[in-house]
Amino acid sequence: MLQKKVCMLGSFSVGKSSLVRRFVESMFDEQYHTTIGVKVDKKVVNANDEDLTLVLWDIYGEDVFQKMRMSYLRGMHGYLLVVDGTRRQTLDDALRLNDRVVSEIGKVPAVLALNKFDLTDQWEIEPDRETQLAAAGWTLERTSAKTGDAVEKAFLHLAQAIMAK
């Protein structure tokens, strides 16, 4: 089966691990996050009629205490950039992070997941902003780890983008 290395990127507590926890196969403890800053999981998706193993490197969210290790991104085939839709700041941080990733790793397929969409009343991302992002070439998905909305779709879109490359 074809395998692809996919990284989960985004600020601290935007819900990366929640997305992973609910929709992927896990065998390692969450402790890996805090010890070495990454946890490896697996998700099998079917893209373009082909089964594909996504090896997910769920990378510890950046915060004031811990910088993300760029070396973990080496060789990745794509990434899911996760944003907390109820905190606009996380989108800005994510885009800055994205710039760093592109400058260091190069351009690889990516999907922008606007997570926590179940909290619509606290949503801070304006529709205009989404339009701008789409226009800039981003594949956007409004996901909810809580309800499961669009999570499969986000992974699927990413897998398709990787396969199309």
């Binding site: 395998q3 065998m27 890996y32 800053g37 490896v40 697996k42 090896v55 490197w57 070396s71």
Partner: peptide, 18 residues
């Protein structure tokens, strides 16, 4: 699961190196 073990082994290698 070989895929996950291989991934984490690489991550640990990377971690140690860094």
């Amino acid at each position: 699961d070989a895929a996950m073990v291989a991934g984490l082994l690489s991550a640990i290698q990377q971690f140690a190196r860094d």
